[in-house]
Design a protein around this nucleic acid. Sequence first.
DNA 1: ACCAATCGTTGGTGGTGACCTACCATTGCG
DNA 2: CGCAATGGTAGGTCACCACCAACGATTGGT
Lengths: 163, 163
Amino acid sequence: METVPSLRATDTYLLSRVGKAGRRRMVDRLAGSGFSLRHMAILGYLADRGPAAQRDIGRLLGIDPSDLVGALDELEERGLVRRERDPDDRRRHRVSLTPAGRTALRRCRRHADAVDDEVLAPLTAAQRRTLSDLLGRVFDALDADVSPPAAPAPTPGTRTRRR
Amino acid sequence: METVPSLRATDTYLLSRVGKAGRRRMVDRLAGSGFSLRHMAILGYLADRGPAAQRDIGRLLGIDPSDLVGALDELEERGLVRRERDPDDRRRHRVSLTPAGRTALRRCRRHADAVDDEVLAPLTAAQRRTLSDLLGRVFDALDADVSPPAAPAPTPGTRTRRR
DNA sequence: ACCAATCGTTGGTGGTGACCTACCATTGCG
DNA sequence: CGCAATGGTAGGTCACCACCAACGATTGGT
């Protein structure tokens, strides 16, 4: 991909551009199996952390509760997740992964791996590990944005962001 | 920022997520000065490569000609670019940067640098250079996507993408 | 001189993402 | 009990992006 030097020199621009391209590929690929990134993220969440209330899923994944509903509807219709009322708090739904959901997730992951390989093809295995590591650090440091009511505003410049 | 392990392990996911967050910050910041990413990209193009026809700007920047019109209108209204007919080919517009445009670009770049610093804060200078380099490699290898009519489809799996 | 192609422009479309409000059921607390 | 808070839902908005078709002006090729 080509660009102008002054843009290529801007890390955030590069990041955003590469991220977008990667996301694009991923979305295309997953779409072939009828999944969206959201779907995959949700399945991943459930596989990693077990059954959960919708609120919690949305909070961690950065999905608005009202948007989550639809995504879960789709997954449920296809028998990939189950929604049942939490007996301990009947307001909540206990969302859990079905065996079919687990299988679906494996499929998603295969797609994801393939896209990773495709996008990062120009890098050697070692470089790839490095990139992975650096990206991880940056990612972890991003606005938690999941902060409880009173934002402590640790460093000046941590702009709270969130319309 | 938190996530589930299985997603954190997916490079493309990380990339897309970090890219998006970076873009967000950039957009917010630029918006404060009344610019969009598009605007900055266009100003950067003109500064780096000199006056150009709209077609060419759009091609390199991945902006549809019909979308470019509006962006240029805005820049022109604010006196940052000039549009004049190319005497050699009166179909074309010769778009050029005004001195005010040059100043505006400097301002944009300062914003961009600030965002870079903010986003990449968790990295050391050396790590940052490494990330920059690796991202650059990946970026350069991305689908040119500016390919002429008949896509040669070099490797199976190079999905042409482009709705 | 004619026709096909090119450039900019207008005025659409469709998809996505990130919101928001209002609402009902349920819970926890005073 | 009564009421505020919480979890899920339904429905809608707004911005943005990537397109597309059609059109007038202009050009280049024959």
